[in-house]
Design a protein around this nucleic acid. Sequence first.
DNA 1: AAACCACCCAACCGCCCTTAC
DNA 2: TGTAAGGGCGGTTGGGTGGTT
Length: 287
Amino acid sequence: MGRPPCCDKDGVKKGPWTPEEDITLVSYIQQHGPGNWRAIPPNTGLRRCSKSCRLRWTNYLRPGIKRGNFTDQEEKLIVHLQSLLGNRWAAIATYLPERTDNDIKNYWNTYLKKKLRKLETGGPDSPIGSVKSVRRSISKGQWERCLQTDVDMAKRALSQALSMEKESKASPIDRGLSSRPSSTYASSTENISRLLAGWMSGTSSKPGVAHACSASVRADTASSQGSASSSNCIMSPEPLESLLGLHDSTPEGSEAQAPLSLLESWLLDEDAGQKQENFLDMATDYM
DNA sequence: AAACCACCCAACCGCCCTTAC
DNA sequence: TGTAAGGGCGGTTGGGTGGTT
């Protein structure tokens, strides 16, 4: 069936976003929150289609996005999840809250796919093979139920982890804004200011903010990974780590924490097949 | 120095799903 | 119940960048 594209109208701008457009979009979302994308162009004067606004926000301006190199853990997680879920990047991205589905998709298409192809031709005991063989051994219905449970658990634990994270890490300014639900949008301002800094400091040959920023981020992450103060990452990488159970600071009363850690350890475990049974047991317990 | 090439990634496109009416 | 609209998602594209020849 399909629908006519929403962006066919004359006067709709395409191509890279300018800092001014970013600021306009972010300030609107700060006031009204994300959603109702259709209302954004008429209310802000942006000559962009609603989809473009949504994508710009979710893939670039949204707070909490981590850019730059993927860690080994993230890489393993992506590989495992891709073998489990296929190219459902949005689902995979729920496990990597700091990464966008677009980022993961790009990373997969440009790097991981090739790497895995090499691995597959190079050796028989790649993680992909083990997971796939396990997957074949259980029924489709079982598998889908597991996935659903799996995603639900991840979401619960993630929201808990993130809320704990925000409370403990909120700057005085952020805390001041925390009375409203959209407090995290404050960090979008940081995004924008960094964007602008990258834009301004970049050479005039830089065609757009996107590349100016990503280039600076890449340079930054390469030179000072783990440096919290100078990082271009809007949020620290800790939510992922806490999600993965890498921190001791387990939130008390976090009912989903234990099963999630098991899940993640399973996902990150090279020997994924052996833990499949545990996971299935655990999943059914939580249904 | 310039031409070429491969890679990266932001953004677009088209389809599907959900929801409102 | 049917239809239209909005939003979400995955695939793809195209311009910029960096490395190589």
